[in-house]
Amino acid sequence: MSAIEKVNDVVSVGAREYLTFRLDREEYGIDILKVQEIRGYEPPTRIANAPSFLKGVVNLRGTIVPIVDMRLKFNCANAQYDAFTVVIILHLHHRIVGIVVDSVSDVMELSPENQRPAPEVDSVIDRDCVIGLGALADRMLILLDIEKLMSGVDMGLVSDPC
């Protein structure tokens, strides 16, 4: 290993990678290790009496996957389905869940120096589900603990036994 590789290895210690996506005008980041795949949007099969943000379920290679529209969950003003609308398939503690987002941007590596605590303000998102804010150049990301967010009681998703 060269000296430059050693320096780069030391610099990346403690850094985490986040998949970034857009909802309305905001950009969010989730731990890339929770992401199984990214798919184009296809209308799911609706479930009776489900919350409005739970769009329904899809059959993903034999696995029934609930699909949550994050735009509706976060009360975004405009939830249109177009060519950029995608579903991020997440693997969360023995459960597969899909989330609908406006678009996926990229994977961003953030070191601890580029992360700030989230401000304490009232929000649609439970404060415990926001890890903090990621700042890099002219971008500001809202970093989500997607596992906590998806396992909240209000999500209407039944937890699998551990």
Rank of each mutant, 00 (worst) to 15 (best):
D106C: 00
H93A: 01
N114H: 04
D126V: 15
G132C: 11
I89A: 04
V107T: 06
P117W: 07
S151G: 06
I146G: 06
N114V: 05
D102H: 01
V104H: 05
E109M: 15
G134T: 00
A83S: 12
C129W: 12
V130W: 06
I99G: 01
S103V: 05
L143H: 05
E113F: 09
V153A: 10
S123P: 14
V97T: 09
C129Y: 14
M150H: 07
G132A: 08
I89T: 01
D128P: 11
L144M: 07
L90P: 03
M140V: 11
D128V: 15
L149C: 03
H93Y: 12
L149G: 12
D128A: 15
E120H: 12
P112E: 06
D102A: 08
M108C: 05
V86A: 05
K148V: 09
G98Q: 02
V130E: 01
I142A: 14
R116W: 13
Q115A: 12
L133Y: 02
Q115C: 10
Q115N: 02
G132V: 08
D128M: 09
L144Q: 08
D126R: 00
L110G: 02
G134L: 05
I125H: 05
V104Y: 06
E113S: 11
R139M: 12
I89Q: 02
S111C: 01
G152K: 12
R116Y: 11
S103E: 13
A135D: 11
I89H: 06
M140L: 12
E147G: 11
E120N: 13
I88L: 02
L90R: 00
L133D: 04
V121K: 09
S105C: 03
L143Y: 12
A137M: 12
P117A: 09
H91E: 07
I125E: 01
A83L: 07
L141D: 06
D82W: 01
L149I: 11
D128R: 13
V130F: 13
G152D: 07
V104G: 01
S123G: 10
Q80R: 13
A83Y: 11
P117L: 07
A118C: 12
L141E: 04
L133W: 08
R95S: 07
E147T: 15
A137F: 04
D138H: 14
L149Q: 04
R139A: 15
A83F: 08
E109I: 06
I88K: 03
L149P: 09
V130S: 06
L143K: 10
